[in-house]
């Protein structure tokens, strides 16, 4: 059943992604000031939305795990976090490429960029903690607790970085004001359509990863049974 759902989602997502790529590359016009490079936003922003949704899912799943102690929620939390990290990496890298072209530098301590990097490190720490704990129940509990702390910290960091930047204004123009005023309705629509495509892709990743997690748990349990037999 799960396999069929994944397959069906793939059947929808793949043509959509290909079609979007075609539209983005060949049909939408260049942006007036930025030229062709602005197209990277069609992946940059939707990747951020997907990552944010993944992090949020991980938080909800972690709270649910602590409340219900059901391994299912732990599997959802880790699948969502890993997928979130992948999309956050896309978000960061596309951002850096854009920065190289537009600002001439790979990295600027722009508030959003800085925040995205900190987020990435925080959730990477979550995966590191997981990899170090052997007992699945202990791992689920401790990483759920860590995930709650991560969400809280990341939320405060967002505010902190904003204040930090207003105190030290950089030579950087804000992404949002630059985009919002000039955005063509067709461009905006394309942004949403590609967000849907990436969200679908993210969902597929989570479902595949979820399956792996279940199999892993089964293997672990079987190994413990085998040890108990001897």
């Amino acid at each position: 059943m799960r396999r069929k759902i994944i397959l069906a989602l793939g059947v929808v997502a793949l043509p959509l992604l290909l079609r979007n790529l075609y539209v983005i590359m060949f049909l939408v016009p260049d942006e007036m000031e930025q030229g062709p490079i602005y197209r990277i936003f069609y992946y940059h922003l939707p990747a951020f939305f997907t990552a944010a949704l993944c992090y949020l899912t991980a938080l909800v799943a972690s709270v649910l795990y602590l409340a219900k102690k059901d391994q299912k929620y732990d599997a959802i939390a880790v699948s969502a976090t890993e997928t979130g990290l992948a999309f956050a990496a896309v978000n960061l890298i596309t951002g850096m490429i854009w920065g190289r072209i537009s600002w001439g530098i790979w990295w600027a301590w722009d508030p959003r960029l800085t925040w995205a990097l900190i987020c990435w490190l925080v959730y990477f720490g979550y995966l590191m903690l997981r990899s170090a704990i052997d007992d699945p129940t202990e791992r689920a509990k401790n990483s759920a607790v860590l995930s709650i702390f991560a969400s809280a910290s990341v939320a405060v960091t967002w505010k902190a970085i904003e204040w930090w930047r207003t105190q030290h204004p950089g030579p950087v123009l804000s992404i949002r004001t630059g985009g919002v005023q000039k955005i063509d309705p067709a461009m905006e629509q394309m942004l949403y359509v590609n967000t849907v495509a990436l969200l679908l892709l993210g969902l597929i990743f989570v479902l595949v990863r979820l399956r792996q997690e279940e199999v892993q748990r089964e293997i672990d349990a079987l190994r413990r049974y085998a040890h108990a037999m001897n």
């Binding site: 490190l121 720490g125 702390f149 991560a150 910290s153 960091t157 902190a160």
Partner: peptide
Amino acid sequence: MLPMLLYPMLIPALLS
């Protein structure tokens, strides 16, 4: 492990 988890989460506090 401890500093790797601790420092990124402490950034708002350290910054202020």
